[in-house]
Design a protein around this nucleic acid. Structure first.
Length: 206
DNA sequence: GAGTAGATCCTCT
DNA sequence: GAGGATCTACTCA
C-alpha cells in the first residue's frame, strides 16, 4: 500500500548491549506509525541514550523498578512511551536484553510520509521546522500515545525501519542531553546524538 | 534575538 | 503532595 521500500529493524538490532552504539545506529532510520490506516513516518535525526541503572537521568536509575518503567526491563525492541509534564508524550525504544533497563529517546525526526496528517494532528497549517522537532512534537505528529507503551516494534502499527539511507560519520554530532539538569554530573554525559545542520534538530542551531 | 515563566497531569514517595 | 527525559508564548533589550 505504501511506497516505502524499507525493512523493519530486527530484534537483535535493539538487543545489542551498547546503548550508545544503538543510538547512533538509529540516526537515519525511519520511524513509522500507522493509526487508523494512515501511515506517517519520519527519518530520525536526533536521539538520546539512557543507560539504565547507572544513569541518573534515567527513570531506572539505581535499578528502580516501578509499574511505569517496567517496560524498560523487557527485551530490546519494544516501545516505552510516557507522559511528561502532563502534556508531552515521549517515545523511547527499549534496548539491551531483559532486566537491563537501557533505552533510546527519539528526540527529532525529519518528516517523510503523511505530512498532511501530521499537520492535522499538531494543528499546524504548513510544514515548518517545528513539526517534528523535539520529543513532544514527534509523538504528537506521529500519533504516539501512552497506550502504545509496551508494544513490540515488530508490529505493523509502530516500528522502525531501514531504507538503506545512512548519514556519514562526519554528520553525526555528540553533545550533552537536554532537559536533564537535575541529573547532576550525568547531565553532562555526551549521550545525545544528532545530525549536524539538520533543521529539525532541537536546541540551538550551530 | 534571547531569556524567562507558565501550562498541566500522571507517577512515585 | 511534589516533581518531571518539554514546549510555547511573551517580555525585554
Amino acid at each position: 500500500m505504501n511506497n516505502i521500500e524499507a525493512k523493519k529493524l530486527p530484534p537483535d538490532f535493539y538487543q545489542r548491549k551498547n546503548v550508545v552504539q544503538v543510538s547512533k545506529d538509529l540516526l537515519g532510520k525511519l520511524l513509522v506509525t500507522k493509526n487508523e490506516g494512515i501511515v506517517t513516518s519520519g527519518r530520525i535525526v536526533e536521539v538520546e541514550a539512557y543507560a539504565g541503572a547507572v544513569d541518573k537521568a534515567s527513570h531506572a536509575y539505581g535499578g528502580r523498578r516501578t509499574k511505569r518503567n517496567e517496560i524498560m526491563y523487557a527485551d530490546g525492541g519494544v516501545a516505552y512511551v510516557y507522559l511528561c509534564y502532563g502534556i508531552h508524550h515521549l517515545f523511547n525504544v527499549v534496548t539491551h536484553l531483559a532486566n537491563t533497563p537501557h533505552a533510546v529517546l527519539i528526540r527529532s525526526l525529519e518528516p517523510v510520509e503523511g505530512i498532511d496528517e501530521m499537520l492535522r494532528r499538531t494543528g499546524k497549517k504548513k510544514l515548518d521546522n517545528t513539526l517534528t522537532k523535539g520529543p513532544g512534537n514527534v509523538s504528537k505528529a506521529l500519533g504516539i500515545f501512552t497506550f502504545q507503551s509496551g508494544r513490540s516494534l515488530q508490529s505493523d502499527e509502530l516500528f522502525l525501519a531501514d531504507d538503506g539511507f545512512r548519514f556519514t560519520k562526519k554528520q553525526i554530532q555528540a553533545s550533552p542531553r537536554i532537559g536533564v539538569d537535575y541529573a547532576g554530573e550525568d547531565a553532562l554525559l555526551p549521550y545525545r546524538f544528532y545530525i549536524k545542520g539538520n533543521p529539525y534538530v532541537s536546541g540551538k542551531p550551530r
